[in-house]
């Protein structure tokens, strides 16, 4: 379970997150929507200590993310992350991209790591690309590779930071399908997204961020059907 309490984040003078309170339960799929600059991506970076925070706290399964003694490398194994830019490691084959971290971070044997990598790559539909280098893959395939790479660490949570925003329109579907598959399998997911259809269909809850404040949160029927907040209503009117 992820517990966020009164989270504040500043970039210099810029107050990006202004007191966020949010719980994400095991098995839940939460979509985070909002215009760019609303702080939604920053929220993800605060969850795995990619960003420091100025006030408040984040607990993941009871571990205080920003406490001094916390082993961030251990913590990050719990939280798989997929970026907008897929960040495949260009000097490694598809199989090595996925099997490297289980081997050197979790200390698995080479055989185990490769078996895990093969399993996850088949899972995302890249079973036939094991020996390829990322530069021979399309954007959609590289993004699925990034998902497999995160899954191979057997994370408890998956964080998606606008995973489809940098893709060509015709490649968006294959990545969303993979994310949908994970959701059906019961993975706990936080998806920062611009794909309203996906948010509506897959999420258990949807949160709308506006200027660093969580404006509204609720089941998709509420957010998309009968939003309570004026800002949320305006935002949704603009994206449609």
């Amino acid at each position: 379970m992820i517990q966020i309490r009164d989270l504040h984040k500043h970039f210099g003078d810029l107050h990006v997150l202004k007191g966020i309170n949010l719980d994400v339960n095991k098995g839940e799929v939460l979509s985070v929507i909002g215009s760019s600059g609303s702080g939604k991506s920053t929220l993800l970076y605060c969850l795995n200590n990619l960003e420091q925070i100025q006030q408040g706290s984040v607990h993941v399964d009871g571990i205080n993310v920003h406490a001094k003694g916390t082993d961030v490398n251990k913590l990050r194994q719990k939280l798989g992350m997929v970026f907008q830019q897929w960040n495949s490691f260009p000097h490694l084959t598809v199989l090595e991209n996925v099997s490297l971290a289980p081997r050197i971070v979790k200390g698995k044997s080479k055989g185990e790591a490769i078996a895990m990598a093969e399993k996850q790559l088949k899972h995302v539909g890249l079973g036939d690309k094991l020996k390829h280098y990322p530069n021979s893959l399309s954007g959609g395939q590289q993004q699925r590779l990034a998902i497999a790479r995160a899954l191979a660490m057997e994370p408890e949570y998956m964080l998606f930071d606008e995973a489809t925003s940098a893709l060509d329109p015709e490649k968006v579907g294959e990545v969303l399908d993979t994310m949908r598959l994970l959701a059906e399998e019961g993975m706990t997911m936080i998806c920062v997204t611009h794909e309203m259809g996906f948010a509506k269909e897959v999420s258990d809850r949807v949160a709308h961020f506006h200027q660093g404040i969580m404006e509204e949160i609720g089941p998709p029927e509420q957010i998309f059907g009968a939003p309570q907040s004026e800002h949320t209503r305006k935002f949704l009117a603009n994206v449609r």
Binding site: L50, N73, Q77, F89, A101, V105
Partner: peptide, 11 residues
């Protein structure tokens, strides 16, 4: 972002 991605995997 390469460094970031690597650190996110717990390296």
């Amino acid at each position: 972002t390469q460094l970031k991605a690597a650190r996110c995997l717990g390296m």
